[in-house]
Amino acid sequence: MDTDATRRDGASAGGGNASAGSRKNRKPGLVERLKILHQLLTDRFATHAEHQEAYLQAGLGMFAAQIGMLLRVRLLQPSAEVDAVCGMDLAGAVEVDQTLEWCSAPIAHRTTTLWNCPEPNISREVYNGVEIRGYLCTPVFVAGHIYGLLCFLQSAGGQGGFTDEDAETVEIMAKGVAKMIELQRVPPVDQARLRAGFVTEGVKTFEEYIYQARLPEVYGVPGRVVEVLQKRIGKASLSIDFIAEEMNLSKRTLQRRLQQQGISFAELRDQVRFHYSINYLVENNMSIDSISSTLDFSDRTSFTNAFKRWTGLSPSTFRKLFRDYA
């Protein structure tokens, strides 16, 4: 999706459903919005949950939305975790499918996505059976990493639509939410201290490591090797002898066919191991020894050496650096 185009088209669609005067009556102006955001940034709240709710309630009023959500993106998982939700009866909401358009676009493009229903009788059922006629979602960045999404949705009973001014406002709001998270939940000093204590040069962002560790996009015999390796992770040996046997090939034949396509078995196995190792380190409580065994390394030292070759970091350092940001 071209998010810039979506933003322009969405604003136009919303504008076609309501006059400028009615929008002004429904929504506070820019000056009032800035005052609200400043108050949210400087006020003290008894709990983190109360502060989250205050931001979402403010957004419902500013954008004439019926649902407000703060989602925590999990880059290694198919669903985003619901940190907070306000508005319609979604109190039991715990996660949102990250492949939904209003989640996937701002995550992929790292920018605000705005959509308004262009036709009176069209809606999109996007969550918990709620039919949506418009959405406004922007990424929230904490310590240089995408933490999650700030989303506001208009249901079938909503009036008007989202505007470019709404998009500008929600982006400012997202910066306030990020500051709230940094101060109350994920102190930025932690990562700075960890990096200073372990590695000062060459540390990439978590998103870069995720991209680097993606599974190989290969087909034919190499693709089959990747499939068999994935199936055997944590269950059986990942040695070439057993992989060849499961594919009904001799070891030499498998090596020759991979060589014909310019890739080796060791390279494919390395990439599969790298992919799963990041998942295990960040999303699970498995010990380093358990991860080493699951990935069929002979011992912890062999896994540590391989992981350092892939990332420049030891597994334990990588876990400490990125566990709170995944």
Rank of each mutant, 00 (worst) to 15 (best):
A108P: 07
V126Q: 13
T138K: 00
H51E: 08
I132D: 07
L71H: 06
E217F: 02
W102A: 08
V73I: 02
Q77N: 03
L70A: 03
R110T: 13
N285C: 08
A178D: 00
L114M: 10
Q255A: 10
Q259F: 03
L60S: 04
V130Q: 09
T253L: 05
G59K: 06
Q184S: 14
D164M: 14
S314E: 12
V203D: 04
F322D: 05
V226A: 06
R224W: 04
F242W: 13
E245K: 06
E267C: 09
Q230G: 08
G92S: 02
S123V: 10
V94L: 00
P28F: 00
T200L: 12
K251V: 15
C86P: 01
V140H: 02
E32N: 11
R124V: 11
F307L: 14
G61Y: 07
R72L: 07
L321Y: 01
R323S: 12
A11G: 15
S237Y: 10
F206Y: 07
I263Y: 04
V82C: 08
F206P: 08
E217G: 03
F307H: 10
V140A: 04
Q230C: 05
E227V: 10
L194P: 00
I278L: 13
H38T: 09
G158E: 14
L153P: 09
M180V: 08
A64V: 09
Q255R: 08
S277V: 13
A174W: 01
I263Q: 06
N284T: 15
G160F: 09
R195P: 03
R44H: 06
L100R: 15
I263L: 07
G197L: 13
R224H: 07
K35D: 14
L254E: 05
D166M: 10
L136R: 11
F198N: 12
A58S: 12
C151E: 12
F162V: 14
K27N: 09
S239K: 11
I122T: 15
T205W: 01
W310A: 00
Q77R: 07
C137S: 13
P315A: 08
F198Y: 15
S239I: 12
D43R: 07
G161M: 08
Q77M: 01
D289T: 15
L194K: 12
G176H: 04
G234E: 03
H48Q: 14
P106C: 00
A91K: 14
M69R: 08
D2P: 13
G161Q: 07
F242Y: 11
E81I: 06
G15R: 15
F322K: 00
E165W: 12
D2F: 03
Q191T: 15
T113H: 10
E246Q: 11
D43Y: 11
R319D: 06
L254D: 05
G129W: 03
A167D: 10
L60F: 01
Q230M: 13
A5C: 13
Y127E: 12
G14S: 10
